[in-house]
Amino acid sequence: MRPGPGAPRRPGRALMSVALLTVLGVVVPDASRPPPEFALVQLDGVEGLDATDDVIWMLALGSDARPGEPVMRSRSDAIQLVGMNTVNQHAVTIGIPRDSYVDIRGFGRDKINAAMVYGGPEATAGAVTALTGIEPDYVFVASFPGLIRMVNGVGGVRAEVTHEMDDLNQVFHPGPHRFSGVEALAFARIRYGLPGGDFDRSMDQGELLAGGLATLAGRMRQPGYFERALGVFARYTDTNLSPVELYRLGRTVMTIDPAQVRVCVLKGSTGYAGAASVVFADLAATRSLVADVRNDATVDQTC
């Protein structure tokens, strides 16, 4: 685990230095070598970031708009509520099955993926808040082509395939996989053949988000990569954040340790509302998960 912002990385480094010096001291007798000109005694590393907030909640929506359809007024194929703790660098993705049958303020009860059709992403955010009690600080909406381009833009994203998948002109076998943009879109959309149906698909979407973060974190070692990637993101994203706010938010997001991202999906059961097949959220399980993560975006229990 990486240290949190503000946490010194000294213990590991110091141990390494002590070990190195111990080995040198044991292996090389003092009398057999001249007095050292220099000795490596320590390598300290520290990190700190004045983040936008200690805990950030972002609602990530994938619009299923087809060509010519309005992205912001189509159904949301993916609904992921992402919590990020910039202090301990943990994060949680909470997948909300798109067929979840919920209250949509001003529009009655329907599948949550219909909320964006009724009232845009704001309506979806409202429905998510009503369901979970968590109000997102930011909402991010991507179209199908947007997801493809973003994944291709970072050179592909790695994620774990848990079930054999054969749909949407793609075949994926269980195990780790590096997804191209087109593959990632299919992976996020395929439900056919998944034993958990909508729940498994939502889990795959969360895995894709976690994999995307890990991919970006790996690329960050390249000098200037963050600025280049953010520049591309800004160029092709409509936002009400200023460049300064966007930069700071981006740096804040990148404090998250990919190894500390937990992927969760709201529990529930399938049933019918009239003739429509829907998901009824397990409200007790939802409340329990939310109580665990609301304040620190850190999963202390199973999810």
Binding site: M72, P121, E135, Y138, V141, R149, D238, T239
Partner: peptide, 17 residues
């Protein structure tokens, strides 16, 4: 305003806070 503009962008990011 511009918040949910369908302007052909890949994506939209909105600060709700």
């Amino acid at each position: 305003g511009c918040r949910w503009r369908d302007g052909g962008a890949w994506a939209t990011l909105v600060d709700m806070k």
